[in-house]
Amino acid sequence: SPTTLPPFFMRGSIIQLADGELKRVEDLKTEDFIQSAEISSELKIDSSTVERIDTGQTPNAVIIQFGVGEHKAQVCVEVLLEYPFFVFGQGWSSCCPDRTTQLLELSCAKLCVGDVCVSLTLRSLR
């Protein structure tokens, strides 16, 4: 059950792309994820569409239902309201952008049903 956010979403965190380039988390672009996954032999980028957002089982949590990949396989995750997802062509987005900005100083859009998020699967699962 989610209680804290991982440290790498904090504004200013240094992220290493697959080609070795270093960027701050707030400077990442959609292409950085796509190009990193292209280099990776194990990981593949999927498009995961937000299909439902429900209240979670603990305070400050939400359950997000995604349709993953071309077959729209249904996957649910429970995360904190302020947990950021990267939306294609838009950037960091969360269910409560105000909390994300307050806690992480990471500027965020509102995550909505219909948004298409960057997600990963293993290439070998295909």
């Binding site: 440290p7 790498f8 992220i15 290493q16 990193s36 999927d46 997802f85």
Partner: peptide
């Protein structure tokens, strides 16, 4: 300064094999 790999930022959403 810690450096984090890009893939740690992305949720791993793998469909289950059943149904």
């Amino acid at each position: 300064v810690p450096v984090f790999p890009w893939h740690s930022l992305v949720p791993f959403l793998a469909p289950t094999q059943s149904d």
